[in-house]
């Protein structure tokens, strides 16, 4: 059973964003990490790069496949999770603790286009 956390916003492409004030922490869901299998590389943008909701900002690579990361929100990258460079498997062990990028949100209202925990739960149980 995939873990879903209340209070986060979810995208159909299985990224989440946790909003704290003017910042959003973006990562992949537990369902996504499980589907991918052993994560061996996370291709992340640079600090100060712009990300746009609905567009890719990097990729998560498992042994067998590369999967694009689609940003659920727009804004500027203010931090990337450097720990994932040496330990990409952290995405498997706790995907919600191990976010991938921290974004300064351009428009906090964008989260209205995303799913809440219940809606995401319904999506992955389809």
């Amino acid at each position: 059973m995939s873990k879903i956390i209340e209070g986060l916003f979810y995208a159909e492409s299985h990224e989440y964003v946790r909003v704290e004030g003017e910042y959003g922490y973006v990562g992949i869901t537990d369902y996504a990490q499980h589907e991918l299998g052993n994560v061996v590389y996370v291709d992340m943008p640079e600090v100060d790069d712009e990300v746009t909701a609905g567009e890719d900002f990097g990729a998560v690579e498992s042994v067998k496949a590369a999967s694009d990361l689609i940003s659920p929100v727009s804004g500027v990258v203010v931090e990337v999770n450097e720990a994932l460079n040496d330990n990409p498997e952290l995405v498997n062990s706790d995907p919600y603790e191990n976010w991938i990028i921290k974004v300064q949100l351009a428009d906090a209202a964008e989260t209205a286009n995303l799913m809440d925990a219940d809606a995401y739960k319904a999506l992955i149980n389809e």
Partner: peptide
């Protein structure tokens, strides 16, 4: 062999 861990496929 690549210097980084990105995967050539």
């Amino acid at each position: 062999e690549l210097h980084d861990k990105a995967i050539p496929r």
